[in-house]
Amino acid sequence: MKIPKRIQPLVEEGLIDTVVRQLMSGKEATVFVVRCGEETRCAKVYKEASQRSFRQAASYQEGRKVKNSRQARAMEKGTRYGRKMQEETWQNAEVDALFRLAAAGVRVPRPYICFEGVLLMDLVTDADGNAAPRLNDVELSEAQALAYHAQLLHQVVLMLCAGVIHGDLSEYNILVDAEGPVIIDLPQAIDAAGNTEAGPMLERDVHNLATYFSQFAPQLATTQYGKEIWKLYVAGLLRSDTVLTGRVEAPKGQADVGAVMREIALARKEEEERLRYQNAE
């Protein structure tokens, strides 16, 4: 096929020989199957910010590091240079996460390079060598659903032990190769220790998995793996081989409603006194 304009620089640099076909187009990028010498890989071409349906919400940006204070100020002000830096930070987040997670044993595509807004990485394939399907396109038995759910929980734990949370995990960004699920699409990945929304995002990712797989294995619908995983992580007890139960003990003892109401009344009284003092001046 004709070489897309965004991929042309990689061809000129000798990183890609030919473009075979378009594989898929999503909310943040278009992916092409390419040939690199004897290898078949994929090239993920990031869409411009104005074309993406997935916005760079502040909750995802929190905790991400930039090269210097000038870049940070420009990003805060939203200048042209700042927007360019924000785009690079967004794209590099996926590259950094992929390298980091691959080293931690997480099942993700192996990355090679991100050049001019194009990420070159391994093509995930099925047993016949064809592009692997998305999880939502695979028909599952109850046993397969339980097995895949368990495998993905383990991947989530490995990711968290490496300090990374996917942030947008669902059946649409998980591929299924000959050995099982492979996690993809990580430009919104967050730093677990540097983001105040890390806990809720982790729980949402795990809840998404339970919701999807419960269609095939209803017993998963009432599990609490997300809360359990995060609780163990915060306590410093989460390990790659931690055995999960899917249950979280309810807080012991009843809430002291009277004490809460007294605190509210006291705060209200202090505010009234402060206003009276202010008006008397």
Results as ranks from 00 to 15, higher is better:
L275A: 12
E38D: 07
R247Y: 09
Q61Y: 10
D191W: 06
L146K: 05
Y225G: 03
V34S: 03
L146H: 07
V118N: 00
Q61S: 14
R204G: 01
V34K: 02
R134F: 12
A143I: 15
I113E: 08
P111E: 00
R107E: 08
Q188M: 11
W90R: 08
R239Y: 05
R41T: 15
M121P: 10
R107V: 14
P133D: 04
A145R: 04
A162W: 02
G105R: 02
L120T: 08
L238T: 14
L135H: 05
I190F: 09
V45Y: 03
A178C: 13
K47I: 08
V66Q: 04
A131T: 12
A221Y: 00
A259F: 14
Q151R: 07
G63C: 05
V45R: 00
Y212L: 01
P109R: 03
E88V: 07
V20M: 06
C36M: 10
K65I: 15
A189G: 06
I174N: 03
L153P: 01
R204T: 04
A250V: 10
D122P: 12
E48L: 14
P200M: 03
A102S: 12
R35I: 13
G258C: 08
S59G: 10
G82L: 02
E142D: 07
R6F: 14
T89S: 11
G236V: 13
T79M: 06
D96N: 09
Q61T: 13
T89C: 11
Y60L: 08
H207M: 08
Y148R: 00
D191N: 10
E88W: 05
L220V: 08
L202P: 15
C114G: 05
L169Y: 13
I184K: 11
L275P: 06
F115E: 06
G163W: 00
G78P: 11
R83W: 11
R6A: 11
V124E: 01
Q215P: 09
D96A: 14
C161F: 13
D177Q: 00
V19N: 01
G258K: 04
T89R: 13
L10F: 05
W90K: 06
G194N: 12
Q219T: 11
G194M: 10
R107N: 12
K47Y: 05
N136C: 11
V106G: 13
G63H: 01
G78K: 04
E270S: 13
G26D: 02
A235E: 01
L266G: 15
V31A: 03
M24Q: 05
R274A: 14
E48Q: 15
C36L: 09
T40R: 10
R247A: 14
G167S: 07
K2A: 14
A43M: 03
A103R: 03
A147N: 10
G194E: 10
R41N: 09
L266N: 15
V234S: 12
A217E: 01
Q144L: 15
E270R: 14
A132K: 15
I174M: 07
K269W: 07
Y225T: 04
A74D: 03
A57K: 09
R21G: 10
D185L: 11
